[in-house]
Design a protein around this nucleic acid. Structure first.
Lengths: 349, 349
DNA sequence: TATCTTATTGTTATCGATAACACTGGCAAG
DNA sequence: CTTGCCAGTGTTATCGATAACAATAAGATA
């Protein structure tokens, strides 16, 4: 046994217990909220812990209690306001319970997602949140076998793994298509990404094009071979290609507000007026869409609320593991703005 | 001992060992790269693990080996492209070493940072990365006492805790001030946030105003009582206030590109021309600055490289804990663009 | 051939906290 | 006065993997 007075030995609960004159078990209880310990004893233990600079070793606690105390979440891109909002909502929703959030990003790559999910599972999270409903077969198996609540978000998978908190991306696309139609447009294009990587974007595209077809409009005006994430730059380039091929296009939807912003500014630089010569719509209700000039029409998918609901679903699942898995279908809303307005007021030139 | 064939018992290394006909220790080695195990044995063990659906329990491994295998990082805001880039750079830099990144955000609040750092330390990270050099006293003590490498980033603290990877925010501000001066501006304003919360922004402001004073210009045109994070909306509102108070201002710097974008569009909506009536500069080299119309002059602080260097510094520190702590001072660069150009070409209206 | 390496595998003793259960004394109810 | 309950605390066993060391076999070297 090492010398208890040795300077280079890690401080453990036993040290605190000895100093406070109680058993290690009492220290364990005293440092955890919601346990029955005499107030005076608890204070004495707190003081002893502070004096020694003791910090609980959750590594040992997690091992011993078989509760890791965290929830894992994978998102496609760390640099995306929508997913960031969802992560924030999830963190907030978990706050009360003491669960922490561990975040990882997949770069819109299901293989990377599989790698990440496996790495997470090794750490025994108490629940796991993934983005979307498209995964590798092995990833699905891993999630199924994990024996913890799984929440798929931002989507409504046809065959959910477990819990779902999402909305219909297809409906989002369709909503924009009908809006552009209502504004009088008949030659409408779409800018988006490689559907194999961003299946949610592909769903919006599908919904959009099906709605166009249902309205009797051509649905072939697409530039959708870009690699996610579709940034402003991709949006700008795609617009050039789209107008090069179909110069008489009068309106476009972009897979997200970021690409919509890039496309809109590319159009403006070409000397086109928005919305008079070209109407532009996006998705996601990003800040940039609200502050752009003109303001960009978009769909609000309540990213923050997705996170909040996911937290609620997780806590419910942990409270009653036998409960039937919930599927939460959130409402989306169209934010019609100047970039697709027909009767232009003054102010935007 | 529970029935080894029981369905509801967790699968452990011992189960895999038994199935493969080896000792648990050999299983442990076989599932870890870079260990000496016979190729055939390793394959046999892999197969056994797959058959049982076994996933290593890092919770136990971390406890046993006293190596948690992850690096903790706190950033002020999850929804910020700059910090996201740094996090990405760090992840990439750590990839080879097998270390994972655990991310938390402080919401620009040192008290929250303290809480977060303490929560991280409980999990025994192998290194910890924080943003900036301003912390609560207790937070500094916690970091000092953690006995792991600490990297402060995005700043050059006067009294570093340990390692540093940053740049001079004051120099960034000064660089913009001199640029605006060179473009002929003499009545120059600043839009920023509450310095107590965003000390890096405050440093940029300080450098900016000191440079103005050094150039013999007035340095009182400021709107800096906003609460971080300073979004596009705050930028727009601040511009109204700034122009309300000092209507003859001809140029402004904003604490970040996001607020610069908001301010610029607010100016455009007022009917001002940018840059002819008002020049606008930001900070951070965000996408939106590059794609805005006109493009916004900014400072590139190499956010991604900050993360990369931090990873390098951490790996060096772990390889040789006795080494003298490094301080990496990264170069920043001015990206002069249309929003502050004096002789306007065609194209931007 | 004898000795020395080296690669591979096994054995034993932990790591630090907590679950589960046992125990104590004080107080309320009968 | 006795019983039962409960808050508060202690005791014991254990979670699953790995470090450290030991042992073995196969091949290399003198």
């Amino acid at each position: 046994m090492p010398d208890p007075m040795s300077e280079h030995r890690k401080i453990t609960m036993a040290d605190v217990a000895q100093l406070a004159g109680v058993s290690p078990m009492t220290v364990s209880r005293a440092l955890k909220p919601g346990t029955s310990v005499n107030a005076a004893t608890r204070e004495k233990i707190r003081a002893a812990a502070d004096q020694l600079g003791y910090v609980v070793d959750l590594t040992a606690a997690a091992f011993s209690s078989r509760r890791s105390g965290f929830v894992a979440m994978t998102i496609p891109s760390i640099n995306n306001a929508n997913f960031a909002d969802t992560a924030r909502g999830l963190t907030e929703g978990l706050q009360e319970s003491g669960l922490e959030l561990m975040l990882g990003y997949t770069d819109y790559d299901v293989a990377e997602e599989e790698r990440l999910v496996e790495a997470f599972l090794r750490r025994r999270p108490e629940a796991i949140v993934v983005t979307g409903g498209a995964h590798t077969e092995r990833c699905r198996a891993l999630l199924r076998g994990a024996a913890v609540p799984v929440v798929e978000t931002w989507d409504l998978p046809r065959f959910p793994i477990d819990r779902v908190v999402g909305f219909s991306n297809a409906e989002a696309g369709a909503r924009i298509a009908r809006h552009l139609f209502d504004q009088g447009h008949r030659r409408i294009g779409f800018i988006g990404g490689n559907g194999a990587r961003d299946t949610r974007g592909a769903d919006r595209q599908r919904g959009f094009l099906q709605a166009l077809a249902a309205l009797g409009l051509p649905d072939d005006r697409q530039v959708t071979d870009l690699d996610p994430p579709i940034t402003m730059r991709e949006g700008a380039r795609a617009l050039e290609r789209l107008l090069g091929r179909w110069p008489d296009t009068t309106a476009i939807m972009c897979v997200s507000d970021l690409s919509a912003f890039g496309a809109m500014n590319a159009a403006l630089r070409r000397g086109l007026r928005v919305p008079q010569d070209l109407a532009v719509a996006g998705f996601g209700a990003y800040d940039v869409a609200e502050h752009a000039m003109p303001e960009i029409t978009t769909i609000d998918a309540q990213a923050h609320r997705v996170g909040h609901e996911a937290a609620r679903v997780i806590l419910a699942a942990l409270a009653d593991p036998a409960a039937r898995p919930e599927t939460i279908n959130l409402e989306i809303s169209l934010l019609a703005r100047a970039s697709t307005a027909t009767d232009q007021g003054a102010g935007n030139v």
